[in-house]
Simulated scan of single mutants.
Amino acid sequence: MSQAVFSLARILVVVLFCVSGFQKLMNPAGVATLVAGKGLPYPQVLAYLTIAAELGLGLLIALGFYARTASVLLAGFTIATIVVFHNFWSMSGEAARLNQIQALKNLSIVGGLLMIAAAGPGRFALNRR
């Protein structure tokens, strides 16, 4: 029973990334515009890397295929999004409040990803590394 719950939890941690990555895949130009708006170089390249991180790594974790490695990579990606896109400490008013909520949500997700990295994918996975 606990292995089934663990596998369900592994999947639920990455649902957000899979859905978001798929939505971004449907509009990579919009993602590139958001990236460019933050002053980052190579917005088209970063847009596709974002899609690969969210959708690709999210699916690997959900399937339990190289889940430890994918979890560490996705945790790093998520921390980067906090620093670049949800930098509430440099904002004020409602924008600061909303971005702080997003940053804290992302930080909580990083905790879940690191638990997957530490514990592995569980019994119900394509590989159990």
Rank of each mutant, 00 (worst) to 15 (best):
A75G: 07
G64V: 04
I109H: 10
L60Y: 02
G37P: 08
V35C: 00
L60R: 09
T69N: 05
S92I: 01
C18E: 10
G30F: 13
P43E: 05
A4C: 00
L114H: 08
L63R: 07
I82W: 05
L114W: 05
A9L: 12
R10C: 01
N99W: 02
G76S: 06
G112P: 13
L98K: 14
K38P: 04
L98F: 05
Q3F: 01
L107V: 04
F124G: 08
A32D: 09
A119D: 04
R128Y: 04
I79S: 01
N127T: 11
A125S: 15
Y42S: 12
V110C: 13
L55D: 03
H86A: 01
L113Y: 11
G93P: 07
N99E: 11
A53M: 13
V5W: 05
F17P: 09
L8P: 00
A117P: 11
V83A: 08
V31T: 15
A9D: 02
G76P: 02
V84S: 04
F65K: 09
A29G: 14
I51L: 08
I82N: 08
T78N: 03
P28F: 11
M26L: 15
L16P: 10
R68L: 04
G93S: 09
N99H: 12
G76V: 07
F22I: 08
F77L: 03
E94A: 15
F65Q: 03
G58P: 12
G111F: 08
S92K: 11
M115N: 10
A67S: 15
F124D: 08
K24C: 02
I109N: 08
L113M: 10
L40R: 03
N27C: 10
G30T: 12
K105P: 09
L49F: 15
F88Y: 15
V13R: 10
L59E: 00
P28L: 14
F6S: 12
S90G: 09
Q102F: 11
L57C: 05
E54C: 07
R128G: 05
W89C: 07
L40W: 04
E94L: 14
A118Q: 06
G76W: 02
Y66K: 09
K38F: 12
P41I: 05
L46P: 00
A103I: 04
Q100N: 07
L60D: 00
